[in-house]
Design a protein around this nucleic acid. Structure first.
Length: 597
RNA sequence: GGGGACGUAGUUCAGUUGGUUAGAACGCUGCCCUGUCACGGCAGAGGCCGCGGGUUCGAGUCCCGUCGUCCCCGCCA
């Protein structure tokens, strides 16, 4: 292989097959770098040695596929290339075969500047030849293998589940597949193998996993593709801690495959604490937590500032930002997206001038350093700014929640803006600092859907509530906590799971709390409710995004860098040009008519 | 569905207040060159300025629309 040759190979005959990466024609001497998956090696053609061969080498162009036969030779000392691993040797060509010519490609794998992404996606086969992409795809392979090996060694079976399955209109939109045999009926591509893996528990396969494609017809983001790969697993009779242990195990193996030694167990934090301290259910632990500093202010202070005396007053601290100009402070304002009645105070200096005692108490409480950026987010104190909470008393109340999450979003936005100053996002080489994992636990069971005026499942409707909250299912759904957990890395949700409901009567209650009638539940999940009645063991599991793990390990900003054939923001594959209209005949066969607009 | 950025040579980009023949670098083609490695030198080819309309004596530049790519909000149990 092109990248494998070393000094110890000197004197050996060799055949190099690969692409012409670069050609340097010095006249009577031609150098050709031959590239394959493993790297590049220089091949030398000398007119003096072999005029016919040298002439043939003159015909070579970029991206021709060739076989070069010859002998490996140690380079003389002052011609060694220290920049590449094979730089101490070269192949002295004795024979050259042009296996295939190449049109001039729109860009070259060896180019130093990348073309725009549209072109990269259209000519993905050329883009994938680039060393960085080869490395990312290899990394992804190694990570997947490490996870398979680990789970298999732990007694998990990898079991396939159908891609053509039943549409369940909870959650994301389904991709539909029309049935030819039953016109007017559709399969759905799975958003996840959720029900199948629970059925597998009912079937006695007490440890299941699958590295499996999932499909969701929702709008895309840099970290969201319509088809993506999950590491899906489920086990019978687990405590949440047992699931976490398994995940920590395979993530350790995966990160080792990516060259990083991480150390489980990961810290754990309840959802409520995450909201209070970070204003997010996926806290980035690389930066300091927020602090509620309401107590630092006297009630009169709060009133003067027009701030609610009952809602939290949150201090956000970003280290090492230093002094900000008036303009820089103004630039902060648009980063703040107020939810509910949240208010921003971005000029801490002014607060210090007007409220010296309160602000010094804030500094003390938040543990600030001199060059920290401090901003305050508080609840609007206008009368009627926030209606009463009524009888509903979740642990973090709705309007508190709005202040915390507004602050949390600002914290992340500020951290991104001043990343160069605080340096918390730059890699140190210490996996304990670079990769801050976290378990977020005890999620709320339900979220109130303002639009639909009803309670909706926060995770999914098969999640088990906490035993202690069972009696609140009807009376106070907002206060019910679920046995649901997320694994979070550096502010990114890597995976989400739960202990499931294994009793049909409780499952029924949940559907009821979600406002689903008995008939609706039967119509949608009848097969599953029935299965629950035939001796279902307690079970639980989790699913993690393989693409996101690969992305983080590759240090990439987009999933597209670790997916060989990704789709654009409009869910289009630019290489194959999909989706496309289909013929009338195909539609007719499926009993489908397309409405012209 | 909404907001923002971008679209000029094969590629990456520049293009002033609207004004003569739209430039650079890399790549490409030809010639020269025996130790280069992002080789070097000389010469050359290459443009529907995304597309459509408008304003103007005159549009790459201004206006409207449209298409495409990217980022964000909504959405993603």
């Amino acid at each position: 292989m092109c990248g494998a040759l070393r000094l110890s190979d000197a004197g050996k005959p060799a055949v190099l097959m690969g692409w012409v990466n670069r050609r340097r024609d010095l006249g009577n001497l031609i150098f050709v770098d031959v590239r394959d998956r493993t790297g590049v090696t220089q091949v030398v053609f000398n007119k003096e040695r072999n005029p016919a061969l040298h002439a043939k080498a003159g015909e070579l162009r970029n991206e021709y596929v060739i076989a070069a036969l010859g002998k490996i030779r140690q380079r003389v000392p002052d011609t060694v290339n220290k920049n590449i691993p094979t730089g101490e040797v070269e192949l002295i060509a004795e024979e050259l075969r042009i296996l295939n010519e190449a049109k001039q490609p729109p860009f070259l794998p060896g180019d130093t500047v990348l073309p725009n992404e549209e072109l990269r996606l259209q000519y993905r086969y050329i883009d994938l030849r680039r060393e960085a992409m080869q490395r990312n795809i290899e990394l992804r392979h190694r990570v997947a293998i490490a996870i398979r090996d680990y789970l298999s060694a732990q007694g998990f079976f990898e079991i396939e589940t159908p891609f053509m399955t039943r549409s369940t209109p909870e959650g994301a939109r389904d991709y539909l597949v029309p049935s030819r045999v039953q016109p007017g009926s559709f399969y759905a591509l799975p958003q996840s193998p959720q029900l199948f893996k629970q059925i597998l528990m009912i079937s006695g396969f007490d440890k299941y996993f699958q590295i499996v494609r999932c499909f969701r017809d929702e709008d895309l983001r840099a970290d969201r593709q319509p088809e993506f790969t999950q590491i899906d697993l489920e086990m019978s009779y687990p405590q949440p801690e047992r699931v976490w242990e398994v995940v920590e195990g395979f993530l350790t193996a995966a990160f080792k495959a990516g060259g990083h030694e991480i150390k489980p167990p990961f810290p754990r934090m309840s959802y409520d604490d995450a909201i209070r301290q970070y204003g997010s259910d996926k806290p980035d632990m690389r930066l300091p937590a927020m602090t509620d500093v309401r107590e630092a202010f006297a009630p009169e202070n709060l009133q003067t500032l027009g701030v609610s005396a009952t809602l939290p007053v949150v201090a956000i601290r970003i280290p090492r930002v230093g002094e900000l100009s008036r303009k820089e402070r103004d630039d902060i304002k648009p980063l703040f997206k107020a939810k509910g009645g949240a208010k921003l105070f971005e000029d801490f200096k002014r607060l210090e001038k007007n409220f010296p005692e309160a602000t010094s108490a804030v500094r003390k409480k938040a543990g600030t350093e001199a060059d920290d950026l401090i901003v305050i987010v508080a609840g609007d104190g206008k009368p009627g700014g926030h209606p009463s909470e009524g009888g509903v008393k979740p642990e973090v109340k709705q309007h508190d929640h709005a202040v915390y999450t507004s602050a949390g979003l600002l914290r992340v936005a500020l951290a991104q803006r001043y990343a160069a100053k605080h340096g918390a996002f730059s890699k140190t080489g210490d996996p304990g600092k670079d990769y801050r994992f976290l378990w977020v636990t005890d999620f709320p069971m339900f979220e109130y859907d303002e639009e639909g005026q009803r309670w909706a499942a926060a995770h999914h409707p098969f999640t088990s509530p906490h035993e202690r909250d069972m009696d609140k299912l009807e009376s106070d759904p907002g206060a019910v906590r679920a046995l649901a957990y997320d694994v979070v890395l550096n502010g990114t949700e890597l995976g989400s799971g739960s202990i499931r409901i294994h009793r049909q009567d409780i499952q029924r209650k949940i559907f009821h709390a979600l406002g689903m009638t008995e008939e609706e539940a039967r119509a949608r999940f009848g097969f599953f409710l029935e299965a629950l009645e035939y001796g279902t063991p307690p079970h639980g599991g989790i699913a993690l995004g393989l693409d996101r793990i690969a992305m983080i390990l590759a240090g990439a900003e987009s999933l597209r860098e670790v997916i060989p054939f990704p789709k654009t923001a409009r869910a289009v594959d630019l290489m194959v040009d999909a989706p496309t209209p289909v013929s009338e005949a195909q539609l007719r066969e499926l009993g489908i008519q397309v409405k012209k607009t």
